[in-house]
């Protein structure tokens, strides 16, 4: 039971938090903004609708939403939300999970190319390039974590005797990781300053343009998958910020969701005060995140430990 409740809450609550981002952005713009539950309404609306499929498409187009949803969902099953033990876990699961996210990306991209639309092709090309760079940062983070604790799964990172967190002995290094992961989160979830889903021009989008032709429940699956992905990254950063070692899981849960909301607020603030980068500056942005983590990893080489 202990493992199911946090997971169930996470699965149900994930669409709530993007609403916070919208609220923050509206606050900065001096508007009221949509209701907090807007994403639930959107999902319900989409699920009620039928779909339009392009004549160019094949079954690959329909596989796109399913695989990307499944790959985002499976990650949640391995994540120890609020320090509770996850549903499944094994030594080495992080490698598998980040590769599973890769298969989600593969099919999203394939579905985009299936529509024969030049814009979607353009978005797909950018997506594969940028997420390759982001993946490099993530694996360097895993290298650093293994170097620090010798563990190779989310459960080992964040539960047990000596969880990875900013408050632990090697906390200074984790500051780099947090900044870098925040940058990766912005990249992988197509937020400003890497990508601007709210822009009116398809030419300048990355992720949003790839799902242009999806509609109805297919789009709902994609949206839900992207909420889960964002939720996972935000939870990842939250866990590095603070170790959830309190005895009461209720206290842990409350602190977790409070910190998580702060991360979403931070995304909202970033989106409000920054403009989207020129497309050729995006690799530099991601590379900076890699440089930070790699730098932290070098510092573990008998210098700072």
């Amino acid at each position: 039971m202990e493992t199911f409740i946090p997971l169930a809450i996470a699965i149900l609550a994930a669409p709530l938090f993007p609403g916070i981002i919208l609220k923050v952005k509206a606050f900065f713009a001096g508007k009221n903004g949509p209701p907090l539950l807007i994403k639930y309404y959107t999902l319900i609306k989409l699920l009620k609708k039928g779909s339009v499929y392009s004549n160019s498409t094949t079954f690959v187009f329909k596989l796109g939403p399913i695989v990307s949803f499944a790959s985002a969902f499976i990650v949640l099953l391995f994540f120890p939300f609020a320090g509770g033990s996850p549903l499944f876990s094994f030594h080495g699961d992080v490698i598998a999970l980040f590769y599973l996210m890769g298969i989600g990306r593969f099919f999203t991209v394939a579905a985009a190319l299936d529509t024969a639309s030049p814009f979607e092709g353009m978005g797909a090309a950018r997506e594969v390039f940028f997420s390759t760079l982001a993946e490099v940062t993530i694996f360097t983070v895993l290298v650093l974590f293994y170097r620090l604790t010798g563990s190779l799964s989310f459960a080992e990172y964040f539960t047990g005797e000596n969880p990875i967190s900013l408050l632990s002995a090697s906390g200074a290094l984790l500051l780099f990781v947090i900044v870098a992961l925040f940058m990766v989160m912005l990249t992988e979830n197509s937020r400003v300053p890497v990508d601007d889903p709210a822009t009116h021009l398809e030419l300048t989008m990355i992720h949003e343009v790839m799902v242009l032709d999806h509609s109805g429940p297919d789009l709902a699956l994609i949206e839900l998958g992207s909420f889960y992905k964002l939720f996972f990254y935000a939870a990842f950063i939250t866990h590095i910020l603070y170790p959830f070692t309190a005895a009461s899981s209720l206290v842990n849960g409350l602190i977790f969701y409070a910190l998580l909301s702060l991360i979403y607020v931070a995304i909202g603030i970033t989106e409000s005060i920054m403009a989207r980068f020129k497309m050729d500056l995006v690799p530099k942005f991601i590379l900076t995140s890699f440089a930070l983590v790699f730098f932290a990893a070098i510092l573990t080489m008998g210098v700072l430990q």
């Binding site: 039928g50 339009v52 004549n55 498409t57 529509t115 639309s117 030419l203 032709d213």
Partner: peptide, 8 residues
Amino acid sequence: VRGATWGC
């Protein structure tokens, strides 16, 4: 419904 790809 089947239709043409959205050409933006």
